[in-house]
Amino acid sequence: MIPAAFDYLAPSTVEEALRALAEHGDEAKLMAGGQSLLPVLRMRLNAPELVIDLGRIDSLRGVRDDGDAVVVGAMTQHSVVGSDPLVAQHAALVSKAIEHLADAQVRHRGTFGGALAHADPAGDLGAPVLALGAELVVAGPGGTRTVPAQEFFVDLFETAIGDDEVLVEVRIPKHTGWGARYEKFVRVAHQWPIVAVAAAVRTEGGTIAEARIGLTNMGSTPLRAHAVEAALVGRPATEDGVREAAALAAEGANPPSDLNGDADYRRHLATVLTRRAVLAAAQG
């Protein structure tokens, strides 16, 4: 598979990248790890004139502690985020989701920002980022702006990032001491989730004090299961305690039907996986 010819630019600063974007408009495409972009180009589903490789912009890489948030640079690879101790301590849900994301080769190349910008509804990072109430920092010609996760995902493969903007980092509020579980349902190991549920739970003496639940592939964007979250508060962290709340997981969701399952099966899975994820998070 050979992509159509394109020009290639590898800037070393965000400003340079923004200038190139401004100049070429929608004829340009940003490249992070290339794990989703290159297949699109190779299958000729898209043929940009210019590919702007963000790989040489060092400021976009790495994880840092910033008070009440952990900040992940957009160009930090999945493998780095997944093994980062700060992330594990304060945003365990993200570490758990990355454990099951794709395969080792893809995790080594693919990036945190690239995956979120790609906005595949079956992507594993959207639900945890949404559940934890992260903020996405986007740089544009007029400076940077911060987009809350619930406004970031607009539709299938569509985010709040403008054509002339670059996602630079993601600020994840610390959830220190919360239990976390990412329940991913697949048929083969290297697959995108058919449905997945991201759950972070804070318990107080066997009772659920707070819960944050995100759903993957239950609609055209990652979803936050607010109804479940509300119903869980004050419930005992037991199978019976959680069952009723978890049953609300698919309410109003609009999952797709495809080779791996019809919408009604996905709805069913969402409730089962939510129950299991919440229980595991509460007990872990």
């Binding site: 509804p121 979803l223 936050r224 607010h226 309410e251 969701a253 609009n254």
Partner: peptide, 10 residues
């Protein structure tokens, strides 16, 4: 599918 839904809306 839409971004916001009743029970699980953003």
């Amino acid at each position: 599918g839409t971004a916001s839904t009743e029970g699980a809306g953003a």
